[in-house]
Design a protein around this nucleic acid. Structure first.
Length: 734
DNA sequence: GTTCTAGAAC
DNA sequence: GTTCTAGAAC
């Protein structure tokens, strides 16, 4: 039913139609029919996400011979959810925490509109820009204007669609003067002039976040209290607080490390006056502290000048009552923040100022060396803790997953660790000297001024001493590399990361390149230098047999704890077959190998289930792995891990990108190869809960959700034992 | 101002 | 694979 041109628009909205009460679809249909009778154009503002929901409106439009258009707001789920949750004045009161649930439910069933439903024009809007364009277009419609029929704005146009488009465009030219649709996306309507029913698939979109889950503070309860014991508050002694170097992430043997510490420290305090060394660790139960204590007790030296202390090295003064002028940092070779442990804590506590100050002193650090950095006076570490210098130290590394691994060579390791402490203490001695000098200077200046210090004098003095300090600092930093050395270092380090850390320093680069070429012939993929780690482990597992991360070595595979686990339990079963880099290389002949990897994975999953029966496991492969060498993931489904940080991480384990081992074995058995969907889009998909499939706007919100979600796992996982749990394990045993 | 993502570099 | 960081999103 085409009414006269120039008639206004009627907005039919189920949220408002009930005048305070919940509206009904019947009311909407009646209102739309009435408006059409009056010759108005009608805008149906309703979430008609399913075909069935909207069919009555389409029928109504058709019976009155109006053009029926759809504007489909096909926004990413995360946008819909975050906006619906954060809106504050929704007419239907769908907002806040409830909204996420409602929107998730709706999105689950959403069906994109089709021309065959009876629409003459469908406009897809996939972002705010599209929406604006659509609003502008409909707002600008005049009485004699018309919009082309067909489907517009759909991002993935299949060939059929194109055909339809062509056909419709052709047809459309003959009906140019027919009335056309006009729309408004909100209650604020402009001048609609045509008489048409317009249907809008309305996904309300508004503002911020879904679940109002409070941010979990990573404040671990077990964080040990600072030492309560009284410590000497003798401030005449310049004090260095230092953490044990290399014994945490670098996995240096504690027994050997404690010997080195005691040797180096006692030696140092015996040679230097007016200095104090304090070995600090967070935990009362710290093994390195007790080892050092025991060993130190057997030596004769002034125990007030070298002792151990339990506390946070960044809060020794404020929380521990221990004034330290200088603290040491167990740094990384890049001298960058992060990485956890002491390094992260110190950079955190000192603020950005320390990063800049460090940059000014050095770019990189070699094992066995240290660099002293004056802590800027603006830094909280300086202001609150009275720390004037941080000395970054890099010790030897025994962790095969870290750069410059010494592969258990403790002869060299102890030597380097000794060098590291010596370098640290020497740097500290020079700072201490400048302290004593300063104190003396100030004392003498006071004396000479007979108790009167002019502000100018004082200022000059301070600047002067700062300057001399800087000069000294440069002299005492043997670890600072020249610019050219620095570049060279970077170059070699890139290699050494893989060569040394992965134990193939004896394998020349050339060989690696050949390997890569050989491999490229199979999968046509070249692997970045960083992608070689698993290959190295697979080829030479014996070199790492002492590393904690290696759980099992057989002729066929190596079981390794993932260095960056994406869940509470996450291990890799790495095939040892050379040249088999990923699933794409797998042929029927590899079926026995796949079965071996699978049963090894099962065995470890069972072991973990015995330790924690609440876990669930999946065994599978990444369609396109990032690391070379075929490896099976065994991963618990809690995904509770700080290393799970981004969308790619999430989707690589929860989308079709993750191929269940049982399916892979079946496919290889039946077709001689695995079906791989290498679509990168799988990794860029919206974030959905792996249990209830609800969508979430970002990783933190998703993580909050999955920590609480108790929905059953999707049924496809329950088939074929893809999801291993304590109960499936028991069933398997019986 | 803070949080979060995404892309480049490694 | 991770780290770093600019800038988008909030």
């Amino acid at each position: 039913m085409a009414a006269a041109a120039g008639r206004p628009w009627a907005r039919v909205c189920q949220d408002t139609i009930g005048k305070g009460k919940a509206g009904t679809k019947i009311q909407c249909l009646k209102a739309a029919a009435d408006a059409l009778k009056e010759g108005k154009s009608v805008f149906i503002d309703r979430c008609n996400l399913e075909r069935e929901q909207r069919s009555d409106f389409v029928k109504l439009g058709c019976t009155v011979q109006a053009d029926v258009h759809a504007v489909f707001l096909d926004l990413p789920a995360k946008v819909c959810i975050s906006r619906s949750v954060s809106r504050t004045s929704h007419e239907g009161n769908v907002q806040g925490g409830m909204a996420a649930m409602v929107v998730n439910r709706m999105l689950k069933n959403k069906q994109a509109p089709l021309l065959t439903e009876g629409f003459s024009r469908i406009t897809f809007c996939t972002d705010d820009d599209d929406i604006k364009k659509a609003v502008d277009m409909y707002s600008a419609l005049g009485p004699s204007h018309s919009l082309a029929s067909g489907v517009f704005g759909q991002k993935s146009k299949g060939p059929v669609q194109t055909g339809i488009m062509k056909f419709l465009k052709k047809a459309d030219t003959s009906s140019v003067n027919k009335s056309s649709g006009t729309m408004v996306t909100s209650s604020e309507r402009k001048t609609g002039q045509q008489n048409t029913t317009l249907k809008q698939e309305n996904l309300e979109a508004g503002g911020a976040c879904s679940m109002q889950v409070e941010k979990k503070l990573d404040n671990l309860k077990e964080k040990e209290e600072q030492s309560k014991e009284r410590v000497s508050s003798d401030t005449s002694l310049c004090t260095l607080a230092f953490p044990s170097i290399s014994t945490a992430d670098f996995q240096f043997d504690l027994e050997k490390a404690s010997e080195v510490i005691v040797d180096a420290a006692t030696d140092f305090v015996q040679k230097h006056d007016n200095v104090r060394l304090v070995l600090v660790d967070l935990s009362q139960k710290s093994r390195i502290l007790s080892l050092v204590k025991d060993k130190a007790a057997k030596k004769s030296f002034d125990s007030s000048r070298f002792f151990t202390f339990v506390g946070d090295i960044t809060q020794l003064h404020s929380k521990g009552g221990l004034q330290c002028n200088v603290i040491a940092n167990a740094a990384n070779w890049r001298l960058k923040p992060g990485g956890g442990g002491v390094n992260a804590a110190i950079f955190n506590a000192a603020g950005e100022a320390l990063q800049h100050a460090t940059k000014e002193c050095a770019d990189t650090l070699r094992p066995g060396n240290s660099v002293a950095v004056p802590v800027p006076s603006t830094s909280p570490l300086h202001q609150q803790e009275g720390v004037t210098h941080v000395i970054h130290v890099l010790g030897p590394n025994m962790n095969p997953m870290r750069p410059d691994c010494l592969k258990n060579d403790y002869t060299k390791g102890c030597k380097v660790l000794h060098e590291a402490y010596n370098s640290l203490f020497e740097n500290f001695a020079t700072i201490a000297q400048s302290y004593t000098g300063k104190q003396n200077d100030e004392t003498s200046s006071r004396k000479s001024a007979s108790g009167v210090i002019s502000p100018n004098d004082s200022k000059t003095k301070r600047e002067g001493s700062d300057d001399s300090e800087r000069t000294k600092k440069c002299k005492l930093l043997p670890s600072i590399l020249t610019s050219s050395q620095h570049h060279e270092r970077r170059g070699t380090n890139t290699l050494s990361y893989h060569d040394n850390s992965m134990g193939s320093s004896d394998a020349p680069n050339q060989a690696r390149e050949e390997d890569n070429k050989k491999n490229a012939a199979v999968t046509n993929k070249t692997w970045g230098s960083w992608a070689q780690s698993l290959y190295e482990v697979a080829m030479h597992p014996e070199k790492y047999k002492n590393a904690d991360s290696i759980l099992e070595i057989s002729d066929e595979f190596v079981v390794l704890k993932d260095l960056y686990p994406k869940a509470k339990r996450h291990v890799l079963v790495i095939s040892r077959t050379d040249g088999l880099d990923s699933l794409a290389d797998v042929k029927k002949a590899h079926l026995p190998l796949l079965r071996s990897l699978h049963s090894a994975g099962l065995k470890w999953a069972h072991k973990f289930l015995e330790e924690d029966a609440s876990l669930k496991f999946r065994l599978g492969y990444h369609s396109v792995p990032s690391m070379r060498q075929l490896h099976l993931h065994v991963i618990s489904q809690d995904f509770n891990s700080p290393s799970l940080k981004n969308k790619k991480h999430w989707n690589s384990f929860t989308s079709a990108f993750f191929l269940d081992s049982v399916d892979v074995m079946d496919e290889v058995d039946q077709h001689g190869s695995a079906t791989i969907n290498p679509d990168e889009k799988l990794l860029a998909m919206e974030l959905r809960c792996h249990r209830c499939r609800s969508a979430h706007p970002n990783i933190p919100k998703l993580k909050s959700h999955i920590a609480a979600c108790k929905s059953p796992f999707p049924s496809h996982l329950l088939k074929k034992d893809k999801l291993l749990s304590a109960s499936t394990m028991r069933a398997g045993c019986s």
